[in-house]
Write a protein that binds this DNA or RNA. Sequence first.
DNA 1: ACCACGGGGTGAAACGTTTCACAAGCTGGT
DNA 2: ACCAGCTTGTGAAACGTTTCACCCCGTGGT
Lengths: 345, 345
Amino acid sequence: MAVTGIKEVARRAGVSLGTVSNVLNRPDSVAPATRKRVLDAIDELGYVRNDSARHLRAGSSRTVAIVVLDVSNPFFTDVVQGAEAVVEAAGGMLVVCNSGQDPAREGRHLATLEEQRVRGLLITPVENGRHERLERLVDRGIPVVLVDRGSGQLNRCSVAVDDVLGGRLAATHLAELGHRHIAFVGGPVAIPQVADRHAGAAAALAEHGGGVDLEVFETKSLSVTAGRQAAEDICALPHSRRPTAIFCANDLLALGVLQGLTIGGLRVPEDMALVGYDDIEFAAAAAVPLTSVRQPREQLGRTAAQLLLEEADTDAAHGHRHVVFQPQLVVRQSTATAGPRRRGR
Amino acid sequence: MAVTGIKEVARRAGVSLGTVSNVLNRPDSVAPATRKRVLDAIDELGYVRNDSARHLRAGSSRTVAIVVLDVSNPFFTDVVQGAEAVVEAAGGMLVVCNSGQDPAREGRHLATLEEQRVRGLLITPVENGRHERLERLVDRGIPVVLVDRGSGQLNRCSVAVDDVLGGRLAATHLAELGHRHIAFVGGPVAIPQVADRHAGAAAALAEHGGGVDLEVFETKSLSVTAGRQAAEDICALPHSRRPTAIFCANDLLALGVLQGLTIGGLRVPEDMALVGYDDIEFAAAAAVPLTSVRQPREQLGRTAAQLLLEEADTDAAHGHRHVVFQPQLVVRQSTATAGPRRRGR
DNA sequence: ACCACGGGGTGAAACGTTTCACAAGCTGGT
DNA sequence: ACCAGCTTGTGAAACGTTTCACCCCGTGGT
């Protein structure tokens, strides 16, 4: 009921402002009897701290933000859960912002978060390279940890999975199955993960020798719909120019591709092998269980949050660390063939 | 660079505090020349508003929160996206909190949000019935909109989908296919959605006549893992006591059940028909595309956010509204049989 | 010449905390 | 008796905005 604050409480308990504040923040420094009176008053009045005032005075807030590329991608929700666990255990609050792979939206979120003087920031930036806005946050003293991204120009802590290696694993697997014409479905290529996974695949195939061809089909986004679209394009190709295997930058894409291929009358893995990336929970439950490159999603989030809190707690300079996890290939039915049936030559 | 605020800007631009504030909040009331000087100063100093101070003074904040049962459930991420669109269009910020179906965690979130004096709250409460904490927020004047829940005791706006009807649709569909022993997999039953969907199914079967049996298998949560577990239990049943169809409270559960049945050697739909709920994007991409009850997820979020903002903008009393959407049965392969093969009688 | 008016600007108060230097009252050692 | 040292509590300043009453001055009407 009472819209007022500490003052009212103080009056009611017959103590001074400072004492109430002490009860709230350093309960042990207050005599038990007084403490009880104050707590009772708080209860009766239904008093609730005003965070704005507290942080205005204290300078820093206790919320940590995470800005992800796509909230509806299970990969990110798992990362979020990992981070959440750590932040909450430390008594903080994690707010989730969704950039939706849109730089403008990312910018707006960062602006708001900057105004909010968040305690720290976990982010998977939409674009690589210098990031003016992000650097401003850093200059302002807000710890930033890059998630699923090498630290790039920005000298920050980072947590990532080796995407180049992931690409290698996928491509090597397909090459070893005998595929000679492989499609890479992913995009926009400006997204570093996409670029790295492609680069890894390309490098592995080059080393593998035997002139394996990697053809890129760029998509507008990393979504199921985009995958379905790409599959339709591939189905429309004349048989002789059609790849025999597809490596998707993402499980969402792979799931879409799977649907598209089915619509187009191509069977997986008989007519087309398929490899995804992320190994989200739904990959194993897909129409054809998906071979995929697994990333330690939750651990990524947990580690990122830990690094962040560590940096935030360290008053002095802090050595930035880069943690890189190794991805792992999980083979399932979508690549369960001896290889492509040779044709046309 | 400058850690300071408006004061510094004022000095640099050679104006008073009030003028800077006016430039920020009512630009038109300031002469163009002065305005430019101020804006330049802001730029040079890299000044960024301090939200805490602003809201301390102004009383209310511009962030809206949504508390969901499970961030990693695609149903909720879609709801979130809908709400996000509306809130951002109105210049606000949406923070996502995850209760993980844990009342304690929900409580902690609400406490924090109350301290933060959020502008409004979208919530799917973990439990039904009186909700003391929520009522406090309401008393405090914070608009609350219930998502995917009837308004219960609380006289609030609400947005929901008719879960009883959804349960009916699913059960009727199965009964019409000739199933006489149907399992309901879902839980905890304390969750209203679960209860309603079950109630709807039970009611429909009672009306349908013909002594259709609905057996409940309660799960600990609405997750893929819980579903897998339940399926194992069902597989372990002697053939004669085993249901011929399963209705899951949730697609996640259904996906898990599908996996569990496969492991247990039962085929869908030949040996067991399966119906899910939510029609998440992955339902159509499942090993056996899932028959499911579709809900207008994004629209749910959008509408909820609109009601909330409307209430927040209305100073005076505001008539609470309850919007109820109709679910829709989407039939796919997981129920694509003429009915159960008769056995043992 | 005078007044009313309005655009443009000022400066201090207020928002609700936390912090900090300090005071008051005890305890126990000398 | 006296002082040192501790525990408990006090009150005012400060945090960075926004708001509000008010002032200054040029303009146009009389």
